[in-house]
Amino acid sequence: MSTTKAERLLIADDDPDLVNAYVLFFEAYGFIIQKATDGVSALAAYSAWRPDVVMLDIQMPGRDGHAVAREIRRIGTVPRPLLVAVTGQRASSQRVESFRAGFDHHFVKPAQLPIILAVIASRSTP
């Protein structure tokens, strides 16, 4: 099964096993994927590639996901990428911080990938 449009998805997480699982899942739906294992490389990949969707862990080495999200929003790319936090941070205050940083969605690990897929698929395009 594939999406109607091959969207570009950047996945950043410092757990290589999770990244590989995410890649397998989203590639099966036709996404074109780049990966990063820390915040600095995630921001570099975003700047060079300008993906449609960015899925970020919050607690990563280098720069955390909040710092990466704030920088992506500061860049002001049009159309705006969908920013999805996938993190172990469960507290409501942490969720609020994700939205303040510029994330569109905040999912807690272990994330339900079909739900994330549905969120990506149902977003309205600018």
Rank of each mutant, 00 (worst) to 15 (best):
N20C: 08
P79R: 02
P16V: 04
V40P: 01
A111G: 05
V108E: 09
Y29H: 04
E27P: 00
G88P: 15
S47Q: 14
A21D: 03
K35C: 14
V54M: 13
A28F: 13
I120N: 00
V68T: 07
A69Y: 07
V86A: 15
S93W: 09
L117I: 09
R73M: 04
Y22I: 04
D104H: 01
A69F: 12
L56S: 04
I33G: 05
D104L: 00
T3V: 12
F26N: 00
Q34S: 14
K35T: 06
P61W: 00
I72H: 10
L24V: 12
I72Q: 12
A67I: 06
D13H: 07
L9Q: 02
M55V: 12
L10C: 12
L82Y: 05
W49P: 06
Y29W: 07
I58D: 11
P61E: 09
G88L: 10
H66P: 06
V78N: 13
T4V: 15
Q112V: 07
D64R: 11
R73V: 10
P110C: 02
V40F: 05
A67C: 13
V19L: 04
G102K: 06
H105K: 05
L117A: 02
Y22A: 08
V23G: 05
H66A: 06
V119K: 04
Q89K: 13
P16E: 08
I58Y: 04
I115Q: 01
G30D: 08
W49A: 06
Q112S: 13
K109Q: 13
L117G: 04
N20S: 09
S98P: 01
A6V: 03
D52W: 00
D17E: 12
G102V: 15
E97R: 06
P79E: 04
A6Y: 01
G30M: 03
D38T: 05
S124V: 15
G62Y: 08
G30S: 13
V84Q: 00
R8Y: 08
A44L: 12
L43I: 11
D17T: 13
L10Q: 06
H66R: 12
T125M: 10
R90M: 14
K35Q: 09
R70C: 03
W49T: 10
R95M: 09
D38G: 04
R63I: 11
L83T: 02
S122G: 15
A91F: 03
A48K: 13
S124Q: 15
A12G: 15
S47T: 07
I75E: 14
F31L: 06
T87S: 14
L82H: 02
L56T: 06
Y29E: 10
L43F: 09
V40D: 07
W49K: 09
A101K: 03
H106C: 02
P126K: 12
R95Y: 01
V53C: 01
A45V: 14
I120G: 01
S124W: 01
M55D: 00
G102N: 09
I32W: 05
H105Q: 07
G30E: 12
S122R: 02
R90Q: 07
K35G: 08
